[in-house]
């Protein structure tokens, strides 16, 4: 891969920082976009020192969709690769009780990411090159009682990415959907996760890096998740509705 510029949105997350290290190790310049981006100064210095690339920090709030164009124009250059790592799980019980809380989960996982990826897609289409990566979730493959608000928003994002890929495939713009499964991150810090099914952020980063190079479409970080989701998707609804997965 030639030296490219990679934009990471939601840059404070463990997965985004792992991605920043992986792409910088490959010699690429990095744009880190997040709320309170000044708090990422240590990470900027670290990545620049380790890999000798340029890292820039950019203020970005995915929920403020009105300033997306402004945000893109403020970047020192339109990136070659843009990855949206933003996600917010929330508490399912609270989302059931309070429609505002549910709306925040939906906006953070679907509306916001879709809006910024759409804006970037138009720029990439105009230029005739680029790769867009959306970090979605296996939770979006089928709604379950324990997290369907989050899952439905991720389902929306997955469908959006699929449509975007379909639209842009003739325009030399590539779209990747990542379905990580469980990952050891801040989001899951207090959850007991099955070791065999759970990836480290660096494994997610390696998968995404390879997927960008090889122009893959849909990426499961741990292959076992592909099998699990085939099974879960194919359980008849009459049975599925009574399960407790």
């Amino acid at each position: 891969m030639n030296k490219e510029t990679v934009l990471l949105m939601g840059a404070r997350s463990d997965i985004a920082l792992a991605l920043a290290h992986r792409f910088a190790k490959g010699g690429n310049d990095i744009q880190l976009a997040a709320r309170n981006s000044n708090g990422l100064i240590e990470d900027k210095l670290d990545i620049e020192l380790r890999y000798g690339v340029n890292v820039t920090l950019h203020e970005f709030d995915v929920l403020d969709t009105t300033v997306n164009e402004l945000f893109i124009n403020s970047l020192p250059m339109i990136p070659d690769v843009a990855v949206c790592v933003i996600g917010h799980m929330g508490e399912q019980k609270e989302s059931e009780r309070d429609v505002q809380i549910a709306a925040l989960v939906m906006r953070s996982n679907y509306e916001g990411p879709a809006a910024i990826l759409a804006a970037l897609a138009n720029r990439f289409e105009e230029r005739g090159s680029g790769t867009l990566v959306g970090i979605s979730s296996v939770a979006g493959e089928r709604g379950r009682a324990t997290n369907y608000v989050y899952g439905s928003a991720k389902a929306g994002l997955t469908a959006f990415l699929s449509g975007l890929r379909n639209r842009l495939s003739k325009k030399s713009v590539h779209v990747i959907t990542v379905l990580p499964g469980f990952v050891y991150t801040k989001m899951t810090e207090n959850m007991e996760l099955p070791v065999k099914l759970t990836a480290q952020p660096s494994e997610v980063a390696n998968s995404v890096f390879r997927a960008v190079q090889k122009k893959r479409n849909i990426v499961y970080v741990k292959p076992i998740w592909q099998l699990i989701m085939i099974i879960i998707r194919n359980i008849p609804e009459t049975i599925f509705k009574r399960t407790n997965i």
Partner: peptide
């Protein structure tokens, strides 16, 4: 776990 600066004159690394 971040490295914060390197002074090439002194060979001095500042890191967490």
């Amino acid at each position: 776990n971040r490295m914060l600066g390197f002074d090439t004159q002194l060979g001095q690394l500042v890191a967490e």
